[in-house]
Design a protein around this nucleic acid. Structure first.
Lengths: 235, 235
DNA sequence: GTCTATAGTCGGATAGAC
DNA sequence: GTCTATCCGACTATAGAC
């Protein structure tokens, strides 16, 4: 808050502390509503370190986005690879695919709802959806496209919809929405649960419930797209 | 932009223009990142009108929230009443409830994804989820609680889950998530569709797809909560 | 009720000592 | 590479004329 009671920090240390503080503050308040003075104070570094190391506030924001995307990639890499292996293997059974689906829901529940860092990450993602900055592509290409690809392979396998078809792309979004809403509407969720945080039991309940619903979705799937010209000429 | 080429506007007119401009600008940039100068310029009124009429920027924000909530209530009131009537009538069949579900999905698709005003409304809701202001209760009590109550009655009727149970509350959120994600992740959705806006055909496809999935969810429903102590003592 | 002018604060970036 | 001191622009709110 005031001054660090230590000797001069190393170069890497200062940059690292600013990125950590930036992840938290940009997530909470957004890019324009976070001041360089707040950032420097939270990181315990000098104000002038921001223009010096990152070329300005926007440079720091850019570095924060690259950092959180790399962090999420590391967190999800193994899970994604396992699921993709099942989907890409023609010998795997439908039962294998359903097991992979359960693993995917559980993994995404943990990644999205579990730790505190994910809160800041998703807040940044939401702000970029509302008002994209030039750094939006980092999030889209680095994180979102990958998640979508895995879900797409999984649901494509279970519904028979062709990869890249609009119906599959939209269904992937709708299915992911079942989980995303708990992140996006966390505050509202907690009000309904009468709690101030999601407990382990809540996470377990959400994961089970989404697994049940997603299995029901693929079991009751019937293609609806391309909307075959609804009631063409009343014929 | 500069000056209005007219005589002095009426009192009500100035307030109305500021609220309209506020809905758009607060939705795009948020409370703290929208300046009074932007607001006054967009509304075509004098800067000093904001403290005069609303007591300051935050007072205008408060008025904007009350305005959008009232607008959504008017938009949804009839649909909600119809669905609640079906759910509250013990004589209505399961088929009636499924018809109400279809009407609800179509109605919410139109309300949430259809018009331009809903974009600003949902952006404000998202920002309040990230960093709530004292005005958050206006949104929660005035809009969200009502939507949730209707979905809850509908899904309670179709699954047999008791009103107010945690599982029903969470399932309502998960089901709504299927639609909410298209609003929250509109930018990403459009990238996948390779379009710059959602056409009527897109909306129709989304509504059909969510209806199909939600019907599948209630058909394949199996209660998962309260998680019956997952593998209690491995017995 | 609306305007101009301005007070007072806080923002990001930089110069230059160390 | 880090610090202090400072510039200058943008912000919200207000005073006071009309």
């Amino acid at each position: 808050m005031v001054q660090r009671g230590r000797e001069q920090p190393q170069e890497g240390e200062t940059k690292k502390r600013l990125i950590e503080a930036g992840t938290r503050l940009f997530g909470l308040h957004g890019l324009s509503a976070t001041s360089t003075r707040q950032l420097a104070a939270a990181a315990g570094v000098n104000l002038a370190a921001i223009p010096y190391h990152f070329g300005g506030k926007e440079g720091l924001y850019h570095a924060v986005l690259e950092h959180v995307v790399a962090s999420k990639q590391a967190e999800c890499g193994e899970l994604f690879a396992r699921v993709m292996a099942v989907c890409g293997n023609p010998a795997s059974s439908r039962e294998d695919a359903l097991l992979a689906l359960r693993a995917m829901v559980r993994g995404m529940t943990a990644v999205m709802l579990g730790n505190e860092e994910s809160r800041h990450f998703s807040s940044i993602m939401m702000q970029e959806q509302i008002e994209p900055t030039p750094a939006y592509d980092i999030l889209f290409e680095g994180f979102f496209r990958r998640v979508h690809a895995v879900w797409s392979a999984l649901l494509g396998r279970l519904t028979g919809l062709p990869a890249g078809s609009p119906e599959l792309d939209l269904r992937v979004l709708a299915v992911m929405g079942q989980l995303v809403i708990f992140r996006v509407g966390m505050l509202t969720t907690l009000r309904y649960l009468g709690s101030d945080r999601l407990s382990e039991a809540h996470l377990e309940g959400i994961a089970r419930l989404v697994i049940n619903q997603t299995e029901a979705i693929v079991a009751g799937f019937a293609p609806v797209w391309p909307a075959p010209r609804p009631e063409v000429a009343q014929a």
